[in-house]
Amino acid sequence: MMYPFMTLNDETEIVHSDMNADGTVKVYIETPDKKDGFHNMTCYLPTYEIKEINGYSDKQVEEFVEIIKSTAHLIMEFAKEGGFEHASGF
């Protein structure tokens, strides 16, 4: 299952998976694009391994990785608890 984590001002959505048995978490980023439909990429925590980059520039990828790095502790915790709603008690 994928859980919403963050929506940026340009409508980019950042979502994450449950924590896998091996301790990894999939983070998926998707931005609507008028020409291509969507740009997207996948990052795996805790290694920050990037896969499947579609439509983003190197600079954009770097910026998204910085966002993920600065919030990885939250993403990992939420992934253990079944998303923000379960982790926050809502």
Rank of each mutant, 00 (worst) to 15 (best):
M1F: 07
M2K: 12
Y3N: 07
P4Y: 06
M6C: 04
M6V: 03
L8S: 15
L8T: 13
N9E: 10
D10M: 08
E11H: 14
E13Q: 11
E13C: 08
I14V: 15
V15F: 07
V15M: 15
D18Q: 10
N20K: 14
N20S: 15
G23I: 06
T24S: 01
V25Y: 01
V27C: 07
I29R: 01
T31N: 11
T31Y: 03
P32S: 12
K34S: 14
K35S: 06
K35Q: 04
D36N: 08
N40E: 10
N40Q: 11
Y44R: 08
L45S: 13
L45Q: 13
P46I: 06
P46G: 08
T47S: 12
E49Q: 10
K51M: 12
I53V: 15
G55L: 04
Y56C: 08
Y56T: 11
Y56D: 10
S57L: 04
S57R: 01
S57Y: 04
D58S: 13
K59A: 04
V61H: 04
I67M: 01
I67T: 03
A72Q: 11
H73G: 02
M76P: 03
A79S: 13
K80L: 13
E81W: 07
G82M: 06
G82Y: 07
E85G: 05
E85H: 12
A87Q: 05
G89E: 04
G89K: 08
